[in-house]
């Protein structure tokens, strides 16, 4: 349904009186992946790795520097759009198919509008539905996300974080989108509320046949919700595989380190080795030569300093960008 091919986004670094370009931050640097209808692809990585930028590029909130985003909202047979090549006017008919859920439920809702206005706005902007019709549709959405219809005339301040996230979800889904990009939708929420929202997202996916690009940094959450998982490091995908395969048997040393850093909330019986990475994430405006991860990689060899690995299919749709993926024997997460 969605095919991202060689996607790049460079942000210029400017200096001086005339804002001369003095370099580029390679926020997204050649990313390829596909999304199948009805699946959830988890996109994980640390802050600054470019995962949010990927989401925003697909939403076309940014203009890509290079690459293509092929989008077929009605499946292979239906209309085809290359989102990367369209201008704003040409994007208008596609936009309803693409919706986004944001991280911070406190800042993503306009405090001066009622819930009816907030959830109904996408319908109004797209000229769909008159006043009464619109209200019916909003009430229907409220029920779907588990909020009471009486809340229609209230303002966002009257709601808790979890309820606000439900409002944000209702607003995103009111246009019947096909692809929903959820950017850290639960990271601002408390554990008990996080579980409610994750269940809701899963329920809505089944009910409405939605496809999710789920951007998050919490590996436990991503494992729970995703069919496949992509790991990003400094603007590039380093690994992409079926969620179970990736957690059980990671093939990239960065994925291994991320998995080993997860704290499992259970009795600590096993003396599992925790890999603590040295140093910090590479600077995306001045990344190291070769593999971007090599200065922190404990398996790095000479070749890693020279040659940038490409993302390649190693075993049955398990993609990895590491020269030594076949030779390394990496440890995954403990799974029942």
């Amino acid at each position: 349904m969605l095919e991202v091919d060689g996607l790049k986004k460079y942000f210029p670094i400017t200096a001086g009186l005339f804002s001369k370009d003095i370099g580029h931050i390679k926020a997204v640097d050649g990313v390829n992946f596909t999304l199948r209808k009805g699946e959830t692809l988890g996109l994980v990585g640390e802050s600054g790795c470019g995962k949010t930028t990927v989401g925003r590029l697909i939403m076309r909130l940014y203009v890509p520097t290079a690459g293509n985003i092929h989008f077929r909202p009605h499946g292979q047979a239906g209309a085809h759009y290359n989102l990367a090549a369209l201008d704003n006017a040409a994007l208008r008919p596609v936009r309803p198919h693409l919706q986004m859920i944001f991280q911070d439920p406190y800042s993503s809702l306009n405090p001066r509008k009622t819930i009816l206005d907030i959830i109904g706005e996408p319908l109004r902007l797209n000229g769909m539905g008159k006043r009464a019709e619109l209200k019916d549709r909003v009430v229907e959405m409220l029920r779907l996300v588990g909020l009471r219809p009486e809340y229609l005339t209230r303002y966002p301040h009257a709601f808790s974080g979890g309820q606000r996230q439900r409002i944000g979800i209702a607003r995103a889904l009111i246009l019947n989108p096909t692809l929903v990009i959820a950017d850290e939708p639960v990271s601002a929420l408390d554990v008990s509320v996080q579980a409610q929202i994750l269940n809701l997202l899963k329920f809505l996916q089944q009910e409405l046949d939605l496809t999710y690009l789920f951007i998050a940094h919490d590996l436990g959450v991503v494992k729970h919700i995703s069919d496949r998982v992509a790991v990003m490091y400094v603007g590039k995908l380093v690994e992409l595989a079926d969620a179970n395969d990736l957690y059980r048997k990671p093939l990239h040393p960065y994925t291994e380190a991320l998995l080993s850093a997860v704290h499992v909330a259970g009795p600590t019986d096993s003396q599992r080795e925790r890999i603590v990475l040295e140093g910090e994430v590479a600077d995306p405006s001045n990344p190291p030569l070769g593999c971007y991860f090599h200065p922190r990689c404990r398996y790095a060899q000479e070749r890693c300093q020279q040659e940038t690995p490409i993302l390649r299919d190693v075993a049955a749709n398990h993609f990895v960008a590491c020269h030594f993926a076949e030779e390394l024997d990496l440890t995954g997460a403990e799974m029942a």
Binding site: V191, Q196, G220, K223, H224, I225, A333, M335, A336
Partner: peptide, 19 residues
Amino acid sequence: SLPRMDQKREWLQTIRGVV
């Protein structure tokens, strides 16, 4: 209510209501 890597849970347990 925690999603855990080492366990497969189709639906998470939730605590009803809010604080």
